[in-house]
């Protein structure tokens, strides 16, 4: 290697036609991914500007997604000239071509990555239409969007989207995607439970999701919804590819309890004794003794000694409202206040 500094240094040239290159700061987690022998696919996602504005007040921004994590991209301006240089062999004037460092791009801004801890569930709740069953009639608006189309509009990695999708028991049917209401879920669960009893399927052992989903579909519920529900209740250690399911007893217990309570939300108070009876009746016989209030700790309130209701969502709702307010740039308001003083 011929280093040139003894002979008077390395010539530096600036290309006339500067290229568009961006500098992206790499936090350690991302760097390790890039250095792995088989780097995972990365992508940059952004919220589509128009719908984002109508749904919530957050400005459109871009995120870098690894398979399971997402990072918000923030542009940081610098007043310094930051050049990206490339070694070339260049001749200037009549000199012999010499190894030269050529600036090929100037970067006025760099991009920082910040872990995005966006809540996938609230994003999905905002975009997915509600699927409700009222007296056996479907009450849902078709959105004509497939699951991948929905995911591509959410500024989170596919892994995070999938987790949120699963926790909502969202499903895709006939080209549209929905999230079921608690009422619907309670009905589908009742149907699943009945079907498993009739067919002698033990829910906490491995069974074919499709078998049960088919039986549930015969009762008029969409099969994908039943499958989605079964995946939601499956134990996490279990392979989630979808073909097989194996329900997690504890998860199912508390899910059924919470869903039943949630389904009664707004219908006045619910006698605790009635609730406990319904809850136990909705479970496979072997699981019934597990139906204790502590299994749904934090999800219920006892307005009186004999009644129960789902915990009000006031706390979470408030938090949601506060965020856009602080994000809004109401400078004129701020200045107006100081002016009056």
């Amino acid at each position: 290697m011929a280093t040139q500094q003894d002979a008077g240094g390395v010539p530096v040239a600036i290309a006339h036609d500067l290229r568009q290159l961006r500098l992206l700061e790499l936090p350690s987690g991302v760097l390790e991914l890039l250095e792995a022998p088989n780097p995972p696919p990365l992508s940059i996602k952004s919220l589509p500007p128009a719908p984002a504005a109508s749904l919530n007040a957050t400005p459109a921004y871009a995120v870098l997604c690894t398979p399971t994590k997402s990072f918000q991209l923030r542009q940081v301006q610098t007043s310094n000239s930051l050049y990206v240089t490339q070694p070339t062999l260049e001749a200037h004037g009549n000199t012999i071509p010499a190894p030269t460092t050529r600036a090929i791009a100037a970067c006025a801004a760099t991009l920082e990555l910040h872990p995005a801890d966006g809540d996938g569930v609230s994003y999905l709740e905002a975009v997915l239409p509600v699927y409700d069953l009222v007296d056996g009639e479907v009450d849902a608006e078709e959105n004509r969007k497939t699951k991948p189309a929905i995911f591509s509009d959410i500024p989170l990695s596919d892994g995070e989207c999938e987790t949120a999708w699963n926790s909502l028991a969202a499903f895709e049917a006939a080209g549209s995607t929905y999230r079921p209401t608690a009422k619907t879920l309670a009905q589908v669960w009742a149907s699943v439970n009945a079907a498993s009893l009739a067919e002698g399927v033990k829910l906490d052992t491995q069974f074919l999701t499709e078998d049960l989903a088919k039986l549930v579909a015969e009762e008029g519920y969409p099969a994908p919804l039943a499958a989605s529900l079964l995946q939601h209740l499956s134990s996490t250690s279990h392979d989630r590819s979808g073909e097989w399911a194996c329900l997690d007893q504890e998860k199912t217990l508390s899910f059924v309890g919470k869903t039943l309570l949630e389904a009664k939300r707004g219908n006045g108070d619910y006698l605790t004794a009635d609730f406990m009876d319904t809850w136990r009746d909705s479970l496979p016989e072997a699981w019934r003794k597990g139906a204790e209030l502590k299994a749904i700790d934090g999800a219920y309130e006892l307005p009186s000694s004999t009644t129960i209701r789902a915990k009000s969502k006031a706390g979470t709702a408030k938090a949601e409202i506060v965020v856009p307010k602080t994000a809004a740039r109401k400078w004129h308001d701020k200045f107006a206040k100081t002016r009056k003083k």
Binding site: I14, H16, S79, N80, S81, L82
Partner: peptide
Amino acid sequence: LALLEIQGTINFPISTLASETSTLV
């Protein structure tokens, strides 16, 4: 590729020669 950061800007005359694709600074 390497990075070169300068606090300030480099001003240089752009060569009028069409054959030059860069300027030695």
